[in-house]
Each structure stands twice: as structure tokens, then as C-alpha cells.
């Protein structure tokens, strides 16, 4: 099947890549840019931070803006409530003009679990204001549906805690979210291995967002490319239709006992 007619649609934009990449934790802007290029991702997340003229590592944006076909998705990380997240979105729009925003509100730095109440409120206000809202949420099918109803462009339930590498710990809940959702479901956070990304796509998730899995890999650009391959394979498998799980063995070769000259059993 042609990838061109299987786009990930967010609002009025269509993307051929179903991998989204975060830009945190990379050893340098150069390694980050090479990972973006190697994976062919079309959406990368960025965070807001106070400008500090004594820190020369602010050049993150320069290589990203030079890349053809890469859209910035600012996140609202650091916001502790809906009001701060909405303000962060407005500041980010001043910087890049993007209507895409990843609403991310996690008030507790120890577990980084998203606050569903503040996230819902921020998403509701921003969606009504015309933003393409991509909320980072706990794997809660009811919350996901409520966010769809207020006009979010996608929902981004977690696979496991941010940066934990525990994989698809939320798999059974993700399946319910996928079954009920009419907007894209993007697994965000917790993935460690490309096989987990493939599994997410096979179970019907529309895309995955990874950051630490790539940034902390031995060779980040190579790992980014591996994730891109896994996501493509998982999507192709989903579209192809997986065989049903059986209760017992089903021979795939003819069971004729010709070596003994006997009859077919």
C-alpha cells in the first residue's frame, strides 16, 4: 500500500511520517539535527525556556528551521496549570507561528504524570481559540473522548512514565482508546525500543512520539532511523490485517507422510 494515501491527518495538515521526535536530552544540536534527518520525521517538539545570554546552546532552532518539511510543535512543559499552559502556547506562537501545540501539564516532577483536569481545561480553551491541540494525557479512554469532543486534533496517551523506557505498560487501555477514538491516537512517552513502537502501530495507534529512547541511545541518528522503520512496519502490518490468535496448532505445510510411503493423515 502506498504511504502517500495513508497520511496522518492533524487538523488541515497531512503527514506521511508517523513518528514524532522530541528534541530534549541530546548531546548537541548537531546530533539532534542528524537524528531528525535520519528519521525523516515531520513534527518535532520543542520546549520554552528563559533566554540566557550566558548560555550559548540556544542554537537549537537554527538547524531545525533549515530543514525542509519539519514542523515545530511547541510543548507547554513547565506549566503547572491550565492558565500557564495557555500562556505558554501564546508565547510559543510568537516564536514560531505554529498552531500546533502539545499541551503538557505535569505538576509533580517525581512521576511527571499529566494532570487530567488542568489538561482538559487548557485543551478546551485552546481548541476553541483555533489551535491544533495535542494533549499529553494519562491512558484514560473517558478523558480521551472528552478531549475529542472539545475539538482536540489528537490525543497523546502515555505508554509509560516519561523517560522510563518501560514500554507499552498501558497497552490494554490504549486499545480501548484506539477503539473509541475518531481522532489520531499518538503514544507519547515511555517507549524504549523500536519493537514497542511497531507494537503500538500494530494495535492501531496512529503514531508515536519518542525522545529519550533516541537521545539516550548509543547512536541517536541510527536509533531514530530504526524507530522510523519500526513505525512504518507496524503501520503496514495494521493495514494488512493481523491473523487471528488460535487455540491450537494449524499446519501450514501438507502433512503427507510421503517419506514413509504412507497415506495422508
Amino acid at each position: 500500500m502506498n504511504q502517500e494515501d495513508d497520511a496522518l491527518v492533524l487538523g488541515d495538515h497531512a503527514y506521511t511520517s508517523r513518528l514524532l521526535l522530541g528534541t530534549g536530552k541530546f548531546a548537541s544540536a548537531d546530533v539532534m539535527a542528524r537524528a531528525v534527518a535520519a528519521s525523516g520525521v515531520q513534527i518535532v517538539t520543542v520546549a520554552l525556556r528563559r533566554f540566557d545570554r550566558d548560555r550559548p546552546d540556544d542554537a537549537l532552532l537554527t538547524p531545525l528551521l533549515a530543514m525542509e518539511g519539519v514542523t515545530l510543535m511547541p510543548n507547554t512543559s513547565g506549566a503547572r496549570n491550565a492558565e500557564e499552559a495557555i500562556q505558554a502556547a501564546r508565547i510559543a506562537r510568537e516564536l514560531c507561528g505554529s498552531r500546533l501545540v502539545k499541551v503538557e501539564i505535569h505538576p509533580n516532577p517525581r512521576h511527571l504524570m499529566p494532570d487530567p483536569i488542568e489538561t482538559y481545561e487548557a485543551a478546551r480553551v485552546l481548541a476553541a481559540d483555533g489551535w491544533l491541540v495535542m494533549p499529553y494525557i494519562p491512558p484514560d479512554p473517558v478523558l480521551a473522548k472528552r478531549l475529542e469532543e472539545v475539538g482536540c486534533a489528537s490525543v497523546m496517551p502515555l505508554g509509560a512514565a516519561i523517560g522510563s523506557g518501560q514500554g507499552l505498560a498501558s497497552a490494554e487501555l490504549l486499545k480501548i482508546i484506539v477503539r473509541e477514538a475518531c481522532i489520531p491516537v499518538i503514544v507519547d512517552a515511555g517507549l524504549r525500543a523500536p519493537s514497542q513502537a511497531a507494537a503500538a502501530l500494530e494495535m492501531g495507534c496512529d503514531a508515536v512520539l519518542v525522545n529519550t529512547a533516541v537521545a539516550d541511545a548509543g547512536d541517536p541518528p541510527a536509533m531514530a532511523a530504526a524507530f522510523a522503520q519500526a513505525v512504518a512496519a507496524g503501520r503496514s502490518a495494521r493495514r494488512a490485517g493481523l491473523m487471528p490468535v488460535g487455540q491450537e496448532a494449524q499446519a501450514s505445510s501438507p502433512l503427507t507422510t510421503f517419506l514413509q510411503g504412507g497415506e495422508r493423515v
Binding site: 522530541g22 528534541t23 530534549g24 536530552k25 541530546f26 544540536a29 539532534m32 517538539t45 520543542v46 520546549a47 520554552l48 525556556r49 528563559r50 533566554f51 540556544d58 537549537l60 532552532l61 515545530l72 511547541p74 510543548n75 512543559s77 508565547i91 510559543a92 516564536l95 514560531c96 516519561i162 512517552a189 512520539l209 525522545n211 529519550t212
Partner: peptide, 10 residues
């Protein structure tokens, strides 16, 4: 006054 810019983030 706050002056803000983009940094790496996931």
C-alpha cells in the same frame, strides 16, 4: 519582563 526562547524538549 520575561524573554523566552525555544530549548530542546520532548
Amino acid at each position: 519582563v520575561e524573554l523566552l526562547t525555544f530549548a530542546g524538549g520532548g
